[in-house]
Design a protein around this nucleic acid. Structure first.
Length: 491
RNA sequence: CGGGGUGUAGCGCAGUCUGGUUAGCGCGCUUGACUGGGGGUCAAGAGGUCGGGAGUUCAAAUCUCCCCACUCCGACCA
């Protein structure tokens, strides 16, 4: 299946692409820039979804659904917002087709032109805030904590499976609050959820911080983000949480009467993560043998492969295998017993290894005799023979170990690829030759960030929330700075 | 949008420069036998508007023109 699969060293971009396709996660579709997420890939997304959905609900959020189409006029209400998204919007202009005059196919019926064109949502702030106006009158209506799971379209010029596609799936939370403090608290709370999800479920360490004005969401007062480092030394923005101030409330005239009977504008937040997380997950752990998945997000945590010569032996093995399967499932572990006779054990080993299944159990005649199981772990590719007794607890423990191991491996990779630099030459050298996160002083101006980007392709990925103040000189202009920020080339 | 590249079996490719039998190879697929603790072996098969259209020619996958699609590189971006 994957014999001609390139290594990360040979060609990282090709490695990623082949991995996505050959591990059956997704493929390119007939529609330019849009992917088909295949069942195995979608199963991972469903796990991401259900975990986050639970976390949102645990913190008081509820789900709703808003239209795919947004009236064009809504867009122009918030100046920065239009500015940011106008260049990548798909527009619906007509609502009917008719048979082509030459009899070949159908054409747009010009008489069915929409009075007002619709934008296909690139994000839903405008339609949602237009709706919130009717939902909010009093401080008693607040806070409003709504999330939606949806698809959005951003007409990108270049796309890559999961990392950047024209249409993608995401969740977008949109909340309304009575005070600035409460809205900021919400923004930070969500950032915390994102970070916890990334680290505990995806086993991917992330930096929490603020975006520089250049990288800020169009229409936001402040954008918070989680930022991860991929194995090729490039940064990946994994999630964003925005404090929108009163920008949208003012643009859409959303006011409420406070306890003091004063009419005030509502404070807003919005936040989202997308199918891009799939790309992050893939790149965070996978190796030259294929996908590596953290147990908590793997659609199949344990696969059991029977080994037998004659079909009669399969029966005896199946009895044992099914018993183990049930014992594991009782612990909430997802197990697949692959007793297909149409594939050889060796083929199955390679297949599940490539698809990143964390643990594989092999049971053959020898094991039946000795009351043993061969246990193989995907993260280290190690194999060992274990006694069958109490196997479900051993496997459960092993899955926990793998989850931790992946996180620590990714964390030490990040630590080994984070550099603190004080000179421009050193900065250029590391960005160009090593990659990774570069901690450097910056004078705080968008102009300087822009120049650094032009010269090195590196941008400020985040201004870390937990960094200590430190007086220094801007790497580029030499002006004084009181904090280091994180630079990197990014996806 | 600009600059390269590629379209030949499900997938990956050769053949095109230099036109000429029945268009070939690897993987995959089907059937059977032997096999089975890391992608097995052998045998027999199925599968093609050579991206589309027009032209040149006795003859076009091959030469000419037009069109289409995809892809890579740049500017833009979660």
């Amino acid at each position: 299946m994957a014999k001609d699969f390139p290594t990360r060293e040979e060609n990282y971009a090709q490695w990623y692409n082949d991995l996505v396709i050959k591990a059956d996660l997704a493929e390119n579709s007939a529609v330019r820039g849009c992917m088909v997420i295949k069942p195995y890939g979608y199963a991972i997304w469903e796990k991401i979804q259900s975990t986050l959905d639970r976390m949102f609900k645990e913190t008081g959020h509820v789900n709703a659904y808003f239209p795919l189409f947004i009236p064009k006029s809504f867009f122009s209400r918030e100046a920065d917002h239009v500015e940011g998204f106008a260049k990548e919007c798909a527009v619906v202009t007509h609502y009917r087709l008719k048979n082509a005059p030459d009899g070949k196919g159908v054409v747009v019926d010009e008489t069915a032109k929409l009075e007002e064109e619709y934008i296909i949502r690139p994000t839903s702030e405008t339609i949602i805030w237009d709706t919130y106006r009717n939902w909010i009158q009093s401080y008693r209506d607040l806070p409003l904590l709504v999330n939606q799971w949806a698809n959005v379209v951003r007409w990108e010029m270049r796309t890559r499976l999961f990392l950047r596609t024209t249409e993608f799936l995401w969740q977008e939370g949109h909340t309304a609050h009575a005070t600035k403090e409460e809205a900021i608290e919400e923004t930070e709370k969500i950032l915390g959820i994102y970070a916890r999800f990334a680290e505990e479920w995806m086993a991917m360490p992330v930096l929490k911080g603020l975006k520089s004005p250049n990288e800020r969401f169009a229409g936001a007062v402040e954008t918070y983000c989680i930022e991860a480092l991929m194995q090729d030394g490039k940064a990946l923005q994994a999630g964003t949480s925005h404090f929108l101030g009163q920008n949208f409330a003012k643009a859409f005239d959303v006011q409420f009467l406070s306890k003091e009977n004063k009419l005030e504008y509502v404070w807003a937040t919005s936040w989202g993560v997308s199918t891009r997380l799939m790309g992050a997950l893939i790149m965070a752990h996978s190796d030259d043998n294929g996908l590596v998945l953290p147990p908590k997000l793997a659609p199949i945590e344990v696969v059991i492969v029977p080994i037998y010569k004659k079909i009669e032996q399969l029966g005896e093995i199946s009895i044992v295998a099914n018993k183990i399967k049930q014992a594991l499932e009782k612990k909430g572990i997802s197990v697949k017993y692959d007793d297909r006779d149409t594939f050889k054990p060796g083929w199955k080993f390679a297949e599940y290894e490539f698809k990143g299944v964390p643990v594989r159990l092999a049971i053959g005649p020898r094991d039946l005799e000795n009351q043993t199981v061969e246990v193989a772990r995907r993260d280290t590719l190690e194999k060992e023979i274990l006694q069958m007794a109490d196997i479900e607890n051993k496997v459960e423990h092993l899955l926990e170990q793998i989850q931790k191991k992946l996180y620590h491996r990714a964390l030490s990779f990040r630590e080994n690829n984070t550099f603190s630099v004080d000179t421009w030459d050193e900065f250029k050298d590391i960005i160009e030759n090593k990659g990774g996160f570069v901690l450097a002083h910056w004078d705080g101006t968008p102009e300087t960030e822009e120049k650094i980007k032009e010269e090195t392709k590196a941008t400020i990925r985040t201004i870390p929330l937990d960094s200590k103040p430190e007086i220094g000189k801007c790497i580029y202009t030499g002006k004084t700075s009181n904090q280091r920020v994180v630079f990197a080339r990014a996806y």
